[in-house]
Amino acid sequence: MDLLGWFKSKKAPTANTARDRLMMVVAIQRDQDGRRTTTGNGGAVSYLPALREELLAVVRKYVSVPDSAVKVDVQKEAGLEVLEMNITLPERT
């Protein structure tokens, strides 16, 4: 009898999956409505949170980093919107 398998089959928490999926659909929805999120950082592009989550997931395929390692931001410069990304890698030991 596969006791270990039985223990492992305990369902993984799904709330995180729900959150990630929602960030995606909401970002698309807002783009289609021509809406911007009006979060604290004032008029940020709506897909930023989703973009950040995805970048974080990609980075984590190669290195393990904390949530705070990926920062994305949109800057307005001379009428142009510039997407700024910062990825902090862990220090090598």
Partner: peptide
């Protein structure tokens, strides 16, 4: 259920709806 990771938290919903 939130503590077990089965349900979206207040913060999750706030982050999304802003």
């Amino acid at each position: 259920r939130v503590e077990k990771g089965e349900m979206l938290s207040v913060k999750d919903v706030q982050d999304i709806l802003a």
